[in-house]
Amino acid sequence: MLRFLARRLALTIPVLLGVATLVFALIHLIPGDPAQAMLGETAAEEDVAALRARLGLDRPLIEQYGGFLRRAARGDLGTSLRTSEPVTQAIVDRLPATLELAAAAMLVAIGASVPLGIVAAVRRGTIVDHAATTLALTGISIPNFWLGPLLAIVFAVELGWLPVSGRGTLAHLVLPAISLGAALAAILARMTRASLLEELREPYVQAARARGASRARAVLRHAFRNSLIPVVTLVGLQFGAVLTGAVITETIFAWPGIGRLLIQSIGFRDYPMVQGCILFIAVTYVGMNLLTDLVYGVLDPRIRYD
């Protein structure tokens, strides 16, 4: 297990370095002079030169790169051009909102998808299965930037049951969580169904039935528990999709998280903040994938020998 852990960790280091390099390169992909682009075409030459010096853009590229990596490793992501606030602090301040939304979306997704997947697998080939499968495929096809406003029209505007935007009470969380969790629910339902169907074919399920276990017990206590391994893995791997989806959902519902901060910063050309948000989300994503792999290794010992 230790060897597996060490090998998996060693594989993550070049990926993290690559991610940091790409994020560093972003600012240099800006057409023309990045400092001029940040301040606008009409900015005075001395202001542009001052910003260039402040961001270190006047130093050799390799020096800029080394400095960026050193500071990022210490958790220093620079300073916002708009608010002069440290980027790391701004991200940390908004992290609870994003985590709250992501966790709620995952709860919604798991709560909706697992029963749907089980019913579809147990009633395979029936109209219930077809309906569940079509519902799942529809869920994948409906973009959250449409579902969100639709939910707002029905439940906030027409019925007046829930607030249309903002954060504060549990009621504020409902529409963003459903909007963000729907696509994940659809993907998980398909995986639950496929995974459970595999398990239901295994001899141990038939053996349990032969020993007198009821159909429900054979499905839930035996097959379902084993079918959970790929489902749990998928939940972990989809965390990145949830974080990206949160960028859109937070924008729709004025949810004060990292995603909204990113989009606002793009609008203000606050590139240090953009870089910081992108790096933070990507590193979190890599971390979640690593954690998922490790959990998978614990759940299924066969994976360690691959």
Partner: peptide, 19 residues
């Protein structure tokens, strides 16, 4: 591996933001 380390849409947002 490095490109897959980014959630796809996030990298697209980042690229379009700078380009």
């Amino acid at each position: 591996d490095i490109l897959l380390a980014f959630p796809g849409l996030l990298l697209a947002i980042a690229l379009v933001a700078v380009l």
